[in-house]
Design a protein around this nucleic acid. Structure first.
Lengths: 206, 206
DNA sequence: AACCTCATGTTGCCACTGTCAACATTCCGG
DNA sequence: CCGGAATGTTGACAGTGGCAACATGAGGTT
């Protein structure tokens, strides 16, 4: 046994997380299995329990990491925009692009049982991502591209919109390929933006 | 009366479907179990396999039934609207209201593995629901409330929007109760509608 | 009437899963 | 150098989806 792998894995926790992300990307969250994660990490089926209380806690951490990547994707897309308005637009495109590229991961982030949503990391990472969107809105407001006032309803609108596109596209309900979906997001964002800029009271029933 | 399948268990197939809908509503799709469905139908754990090829096929049919109910919910909400524009608005509210009332069922309808999305019934029922939305858009176009032209991009926009609200609200990402969520949907729809009416550059091009 | 057929329902089994308990190994602070 | 605390392993258990073989009984044919 002197030649075999060390009894204590160097950094098993992160190894497991990485394996989990990969596995979910391969087989989806439904076929995702704790035991298979352990197998891929070259470790017994119970080793993960020394690092995560349960399968769901592992998933919650995977989700948290997903939110970080989502944030990065949005920031990266925004980078190539100049005006606050275009930044908001590209922020949305970054959101959708992430969802299209890692649909399974996206699924874990948003469609986990509510139990998981209480997890600290998960919640914090999620709010970080949402904060990016809020920044965009705020910037657009300050630039006069959006009406001043309560920021949250505008943010919810924008978020709902890109989230809806992402979910429908992933589930195959939008007959568009990835490229067209992004293009659609961009142009539709413009439409939405026009409505938000005009304000909602114009044609009011209320 | 004229039913012609009364064998051991009179009309087991529908009994199983009903039990499945109930069970999913109670425990969610993750904890949902074929064996428990059979138990509740008072039947052995393998009886369902005489009516459904697999657990997933059962779920696909549950989803199809959900689409029918969704369609009904939209139509019901629309009934109290007069103008095409209000109809579209209320159609969206009906969509969100359904999702809020039966979140688990809604989940099954949209967040099933793609494999299921090929099922006939599922697809047909889904398209029926989408058709309601399209009718609304078309009516609004004819009434001059929306710019004439390609209908689909407008429909996708509206759908994505309400779908996003529904999913985010269900997953607890919108800090609003059900009532406020519907109100938000209504007012935000107006904003979106303004943008679509103004007709931004771009979405009709392709 | 008797008979046969086949859809429907049952029992038993399999591999697999998440999780618990008990045990083994290794690391680190006294 | 030692002993407790991490960390990893083995073994077990109940529960799952699905397969195969068997049982039952409804309906048509004779």
């Amino acid at each position: 046994m002197t030649r075999s792998e060390p009894y204590h894995h160097a950094n098993l926790r992160q190894t497991l997380l990485d394996a989990a992300v990969t596995l979910i990307g391969e087989v989806g969250p439904r076929a995702f299995t704790l035991r298979e994660v352990a197998r891929r990490a070259g470790v017994s089926h119970n080793a993960p329990y020394r690092h995560f209380m349960s399968k769901d806690e592992l998933l919650a951490e995977v989700a948290a990491e997903g939110f970080d990547r989502l944030t990065a994707s949005m920031r990266k897309s925004m980078a190539r925009a100049t005006s606050p308005r275009k930044q908001l637009q590209e922020c949305g495109c970054g959101y959708v692009a992430f969802a299209l590229r890692w649909p399974q991961h996206f699924f874990v982030m948003f469609d986990l049982p509510q139990a998981l949503h209480g997890q600290e990391k998960h919640q914090a990472a999620g709010q970080n991502a949402f904060a990016v969107l809020q920044e965009c809105i705020a910037a657009a407001q300050q630039a006069g591209d959006l009406p001043a006032g309560d920021l949250l309803p505008l943010a919810w609108m924008a978020w709902s919109f890109v989230h809806g596109i992402a979910k429908l596209a992933i589930s195959g309900n939008l007959p568009l390929n990835a490229r067209s979906t992004i293009e659609f997001t961009r142009s539709a964002s413009q439409t939405i933006f026009g409505g938000m800029k005009a304000g909602s009271s114009g044609y009011g029933i209320r």
